[in-house]
Each structure stands twice: as C-alpha cells, then as structure tokens.
Write a protein that binds this DNA or RNA. Structure first.
Lengths: 283, 283
DNA sequence: GCAAATTTGTTCGTATGTATT
DNA sequence: CAATACATACGAACAAATTTG
C-alpha cells in the first residue's frame, strides 16, 4: 500500500514500535544509522520520522535523539452532575481539583493569576451576548499536573459586576469559594446552567510556548468554551465565559448524562496498531 | 521571534492571509514564484507551506497549486436533554438528523450498514464491561453532509440480545425507530444514561481514506465513545457502545447542562490571527 | 483522446547551524 | 572543548497529478 520510500520506512518503524521491539520510552537509531539500515538518504529518513512524529508515535530532541513516545492521558469530567452539583455551584476549578485528587494526580495552580481589563471582542462578546467593546475582566490561570503545564484557563466577566460590588474579581489571587459561588453570595447572580463548546485547533504561539509543544503546529489543542447562564426574568442570560485550553495528545474528556455507574472513567488507550480490522472478526 | 528562514516566510504568508490579501479559497503563488519572491530555495518554501498546512491555513493539491483553506465547521450537540429526551430514547442517529435539519444541512447516511459479528476486545470489552472474547454485533454506518463524508459510526451490541429476540440487529438496513427504542420495545432494555468519552488522535488508514484526509497524519480525528447504560437491579449496566469518528478540523461539539437559552449553538470561528494579545487590552 | 505545459511530490546529495552530553 | 544528534538550508533531478491546447 505505501508506495513511497519514506512511507515504507515509516510503516516499518511503526511496526517495530507496535510489535514491542521498540518499547515506549526507548531510543530509535540515530538518523545516520537509519540511513545505513534502510539505504535511503538522510532527508528521506527525516521525512519518515516526521510521519511518525505527526502521529505522536515518536518525538525528536536535538542533541539527544528520537524516542518512542510514552503517553499517559489525563481524563477530565466535563459534566456538572457527577456529584451533587459541584460544577454548577463551585466552578470548574474546584471540580477539577477534586477530580485530580480522586485520580491521585498532583495538580496545582499558579497562586498568581493574570488579571486584566479588556474590551469584549469577537467570540467573547458573542458568547457573552454583549456589545463589542463592552468592558470585561479577564482572569487567566495556569494549572499544572506533576509540575508540567496542563491547562490554561481564561475567564471573562462583564465589568459591571465589579461596579456592583464584586471587587474580588480584580484581585490577582484565587477566589476561595470559586467565582460562581462568590458572585451568588455577593450579588445574588445564580448560575442555572452552562454550555460547553469544544473545538480542536492548532496552538497559537503563546500556547505552544506554555505547553512546550513543537512549533510546527502538529500537536493540536482542545479548547473548551464554557458559557455560564444566570437566572433572569428574560430567560437564561450569559454572565461568564471560561475558556480552557489543553494539549490534545494528552487529554481526554468525559461527559455523563443520566445514570452511569461510577462517575470517573479511565483513560482510553488506543491500539496504536491500525490492525483492528481482522483480528476480532469472526470468520 | 521566528528565527529560521522558513518560519519567517511562513509567518509572512500567514500575515498576508489574515490581512485579507489572500482571501479564503484563493490560490497562492506557485512554489517557483515563492522561491523568487522570498529568495529562498524550493525546499525552504515547501517547509514554510508545510507549517501553514499543519495549521490548516492552506492546502496543497498536486497539479493545481496551494490554496487558502475555507473552513465551515459543523456543530453537533452531544447532550441528550436538548429537547425532551430524543438522545436518551431515540438514539444519536435520529438526534443528529434532527439537528442537521434544524441547521439546514443536507445530511444523509448510507442506506446499507456494515454488520458483522465480532469478539469483543480491548476498549470494546472494557467499556461494555464484558469478558474479552464475548460475542458482539458490530454495526457501522457512514454519514454524509452535502455529499461529503462527515462521520463514521460504529456500534457494538452484546450478541445475547439477538439470542433473546432482537433479530433486527442482524439486518443491514437502518432500524427505523432507532436501536435504543427497538431494544426497549423488543426486550424491555431501558437506557437510563450514557457516558461520552472524547479523544483526539491521528486517523488510521481506513479513516484517512474515508474522510479523504492527507496521509501524513496532520489532521486529527475526534472520537466520541458513547456507552449506553441500561436499568438493572445491580445498578446501571452498559448495554451498547457507539463510536463516532469525525475529522477534527471541520467539527465542533456542544454540551448543554441545565438551562441555557437556545439549544443550538453556532460554530466558533477562531481568529486565525494569533494577535489576540494586545488588541483588546485596555492600556 | 492525446500531448504538452504546469504544479506539487519524492528523493538524492551536501553543507552548516544549534542543542545536548 | 569535543563529540554527537537533530535542525535548517541550498541545489538538483525525476515522478505524479492536473489542466490546457
């Protein structure tokens, strides 16, 4: 099937990885050795490695070598109803911490947030259903798991809440009880629902730097836009927007609806093999 | 910031795209002209184009040229509670059709399904909570929007339901009322909840062929594992697994929880620009 | 329907730069 | 500092896909 030379070499290397000859974490032969082994030019070998890199099977590090990737995905539950309703009342920060704890992951967040006033634009204005140019407060938080960057969370709140007395929104430190609970206590703004909008795209420069993703754009990020809706005489009204960005190669998401047994699901390990065609077929 | 030549060229081309000088759908200069324009070698030009391709900004077609990509993402609602409870009772097929209709998309499915007996293995056995090697029925359906491949849906049902009388599971044609409703009518198996598990990965060969994705693995697919749970004295018990695969560059997903105003959300168009840093900052 | 022209895809060779050990 | 390994860049040739005449 693979007609071109670099494809043939790539498929052969993939087979060697999947057969266990090259286990996760192990180092490939260097490029010169691969040149000798396959009798191809160095450019062709590099093209084959690029094919494997695009599939997250290997990873090259300058000065060191090329290594078989070991993946250990983190699973995050997006649904709010997994336990009483932490997600609806506490905010996703708290929920994420509790889930991480239940999964035995060392999670932490930067104690300092980036807090900036902005004019609402584009998506922000559109999802919050406010005029472009309206004042909003941006609050950005970095989260880490095992000291490695895990998520970048950016929240937007209409500026009017500060004017109305929710002055903690300006503070650069975390709001203890969660912003949703705080806004309810302070202003009586009650969240009655939310919408998650999930998008996969290439990281921008900031994201690539923060997550230490290769700058060639081959590893995507998953972006979750969560719009919170508050009770209002005119019907559910958007009052907050939280955008979470995660590297797509190491993160999975779960949504529970109705009754589903245990609330926390395990990561799905996909057969790197694409062999799934005939193995399980009853003939 | 971009030190290497190909990065500089790529960023310049990106700027020309985002400024509107090269609108969506338009054709770039050919490689030779870019060589002349930037005074770089053809290989370097091609590497710059690859950088843009990885970000889904452009697309090259052999014999024709390189074109600015026009994206028109499809949004799918995953939550079941968006209208009475079609998702819980009717099955996602029906729900998807109704959503497509509401969005004015021409959606159709192959009238013929692939139906095969299998032995449960790996993820399938694990999510259905059955022994590896247990018999299951695989039902696979292809869906199209505007005559272009949109999703690949593969469902697994324990073989025992056929033995118990749900013989339609063997049929290669669609089950009118939806499988969930059929199993309820026929056997009294009632779905009380489901779990969606979302994963992003590179397409396998079959998927790349079906979706006509480039074989270099740069465009990922989004995979949604939906495990349906049935009422049971021992608690919620998995009774079906539906795996939907979608190309990641043209699909977005929405989950509604609680009350959220309109049920259908519009696609999010991300500023291809990564300029979002200072524009909206109040100084 | 065929041949020519155009355009991207693959492959080789070679040289130099940069990061890590 | 030296050795090693990947990254970038140049030049060249032929192959494959598509459009055009």
């Amino acid at each position: 099937m693979p007609e071109s030379l670099y494809r043939t070499i790539a498929v052969d290397l993939r087979q060697r990885i999947e057969s266990g000859e090259l286990p996760a974490g192990s180092q490939l032969e260097n490029e010169q050795e691969l040149v000798d082994r396959y009798g191809a030019s160095r450019n062709t070998i590099r093209q084959a490695i690029r094919w494997l890199t695009n599939r997250r099977l290997v990873e090259s590090r300058p000065g060191q070598g090329t290594f078989v990737v070991k993946i250990d995905p983190v699973v995050t539950t997006l649904s709010a109803d997994w336990k009483s309703d932490k997600g609806l009342s506490g905010g996703e920060g708290k929920a994420a911490f509790e889930e991480a704890e239940a999964r035995n992951l060392e999670m932490r967040a930067d104690p300092l947030l980036t807090v900036e006033p902005r004019f609402a634009e584009g998506i922000v204005a559109s999802l919050l259903q406010i005029q472009e140019g309206t004042g909003v407060i941006l609050r950005q938080k970095r989260r880490y798991i095992k000291n490695k960057p895990w998520s970048l969370e950016t929240s937007y709140y209409p500026m009017k809440y500060i004017d109305q007395g929710a002055s903690l929104l300006r503070s650069k430190s975390d709001i203890e009880q969660g912003v949703v609970a705080y806004l309810k206590e302070q202003l009586g703004v009650k969240q009655i629902g939310f919408r998650d909008h999930i998008v996969v795209r290439a990281p921008d420069d900031d994201e690539a730097r923060y997550f230490q993703l290769p700058d060639d754009g081959t590893i995507s990020v998953i972006v979750v836009f969560r719009t919170g809706f508050a009770d209002d005489p005119k019907g559910p009204t958007p009052f907050r927007l939280t955008i979470n960005v995660y590297p797509a190669d190491t993160n999975q998401f779960v949504i529970n609806s109705g009754e589903v047994g245990e609330v926390f699901a395990n990561p799905i390990a996909f057969m790197t093999s694409s062999a799934e065609s005939d193995d399980s077929l009853i003939k």
